[in-house]
């Protein structure tokens, strides 16, 4: 049994909050640079130039890439041989988020649903936990913006609708979202499982590196087909018209009930932020 202390976890999460909000993953930057090279629309190119410039400023000056520093979403992979000591594990994560958002000058965007009163520390944290083999603890921090989350969709499709039905649902979701989710977007898709797991695997799909496809070749083909169809919509960077509406489509699939075919599109903006650490 390997012991990991709560203080270490709090410190790690504090750092992740800031790093995720100031630095964009390299694969996302690379995809944006490639989009800039390929974009036919002059407005689209100008938007992509602004996006790339923004990344430079945020990285250099340690200011948030976007004023929406997101809902604090944390994915945990806990090795079954790890023993958390020195306090309450989830509370240690919460303290890390409170610290990171305060000393990083990150925007606190969480409020009561009815009164809209801000909780002022960006908590509660949304935590998803998986138990895995081994003696490591992997923490992934994903600040999830509201604009792209608002246009995410869930549909209980009929089995008869098949792969075409899924494709239409994904493309139509991006079409309806238009300029709102800050394109070029990353499209996370969940298919199968149950009502709640479909959404969870769609969100996990947003963490995959851009350029990597699902290991199942049939699903990988569907990802490619969806991406082409989405980029043929013409929405373009910032919705001003252009070739690049999405940087990637990532699909995760689980088997489902014989009566069902749930599908979720979880949209992410071009500032596709996430950062991980393994303790």
């Amino acid at each position: 049994m390997r012991e990991i202390g709560c203080l270490e976890i709090t410190k790690a999460v504090d750092g992740l909050c800031k790093d995720a909000n100031f630095l964009l993953p390299k694969d996302v930057i690379k995809a944006l640079e490639k989009a800039r090279e390929n974009e036919e629309s002059s407005c689209g190119r100008a938007v992509l130039d602004q996006i790339l410039k923004n990344i430079q400023i945020a990285t250099k000056e340690k200011i948030p890439l976007c004023q929406d520093c997101g809902t604090a979403v944390v994915f945990l992979e806990i090795g079954q041989d790890v023993h958390i000591v020195g306090g309450n594990f989830y509370n240690a994560i919460k303290q890390g988020v409170k610290k990171g958002y305060k000393n990083g000058y990150l925007r606190k965007s969480i409020c009561h649903c009815f009164t809209r009163k801000n909780t002022n520390d960006n908590t509660p944290v949304i935590i998803h936990t998986d138990i895995v083999p081994g003696d490591k603890l992997k923490i992934t921090f994903c600040p999830k913006g509201g604009g792209s989350e608002n246009v995410s969709t869930l549909k209980m499709l009929k089995p008869a609708q098949g792969i075409d039905g899924i494709k239409n649902f994904v493309v139509e979701s991006v079409k309806q979202a238009g300029a709102n989710p800050c394109p070029p977007v990353v499209v996370g898709v969940g298919i199968g499982g149950t009502f709640e797991t479909t959404a969870l695997i769609a969100k996990k799909a947003l963490l995959r590196k851009i350029g990597e496809h699902n290991k199942d070749s049939e699903i990988a083909n569907l990802e490619r087909e969806c991406l082409i169809a989405i980029n043929n919509l013409g929405i373009g960077p910032a919705g001003l018209g252009g070739r690049t509406t999405a940087l990637a489509v990532h699909i995760n699939m689980l088997p489902c009930h014989i009566a069902s075919m749930p599908a979720v599109v979880n949209m992410n903006c071009h500032s596709a932020r996430h950062k991980e650490i393994t303790l």
């Binding site: 945020a58 200011i63 948030p64 890439l65 976007c66 004023q67 929406d68 520093c69 000058y105 990150l106 925007r107 965007s109 509201g146 604009g147 608002n150 709102n180």
Partner: peptide, 20 residues
Amino acid sequence: YVGPSPTKPGEIIGSAGPTT
């Protein structure tokens, strides 16, 4: 339509892009 991030000491404003 903007809700900026908090201003760091010595700065004018935080990150300040548009909302939906």
